[in-house]
Design a protein around this nucleic acid. Sequence first.
DNA 1: ATTACTGCAAAGCATTTGCAGACTG
DNA 2: CAGTCTGCAAATGCTTTGCAGTAAT
Lengths: 143, 143
Amino acid sequence: MTERNAAERGNEWPAGMKRTKQREAVLAVLERAEGPLRAAEIRARTGEDGAPVRLSTVYRILEIIVKKGMAVKLSILGGETAVYELNRFRHRHYAVCVRCRKIVSMDNCPMERFIPKLEDGDFRVTGHNLEIYGYCKDCDAAP
Amino acid sequence: MTERNAAERGNEWPAGMKRTKQREAVLAVLERAEGPLRAAEIRARTGEDGAPVRLSTVYRILEIIVKKGMAVKLSILGGETAVYELNRFRHRHYAVCVRCRKIVSMDNCPMERFIPKLEDGDFRVTGHNLEIYGYCKDCDAAP
DNA sequence: ATTACTGCAAAGCATTTGCAGACTG
DNA sequence: CAGTCTGCAAATGCTTTGCAGTAAT
């Protein structure tokens, strides 16, 4: 498992963005994350070693890094709570288990061939979001 | 324009659901709607002729009719506020203008051919949601 | 007459914001 | 040192809920 940590990231810290331990902590959590996280989850994980980053600060940091394009904000399944993940500059979509709420990332995107057909119409497409929902393997097997 | 009104709908009122003027008002608004509406918009429109249905009541009615499958709840573009529309039993997706927030419904769905490929995997698909975003004709032309 | 539905007001969440002190560059 | 960032606490906006009165079957 090749896990990048805050020290390694040091070289690629964005210009003009002050380096604080809160920001390092939030980015480290996002880098380790196995999937998109809610703000509250991010705060909790920053607290695993040391004092947690305050929720308001988490939101402020997320706002900044989303604006810088380092992360993306997603709202999944009924828009309950926003989730965030690092922008890995790969086009991604998500499958959400309606039972356990687990979020599975997918690499494949069926939209590429479809979008051009929309472009000629009344709408200039700049992006899209696709959510698949259903049951993950575990929940489908569960009673 | 064949607009169905409350009187016409009379014959198809769901069994076991009490018919109150608030429910008729909310359903009438949804039937006339040109697109998905927020709860607050629904309340406002019920007030156009007579006393508006209270917001808490609107939410309760929406919850019921969504549960009955008569309407669908959507959260679009960042999950800010949920919007609702009657379930017309047609598979639909939405294009959202990132400037004016106008929502355009689309009839075409590119997913049908793609879903089966997912089914063999770790996920049993029961539904999906696709949002397209970009600029509508008006906003694209605007300065 | 029963039972469900509405209005009202207050509570709940996720998210945002004002301010004063703390830290970075 | 100047300007930014954080913590705290309070505010906000959407949505939900408890309760008592009102209306539908």
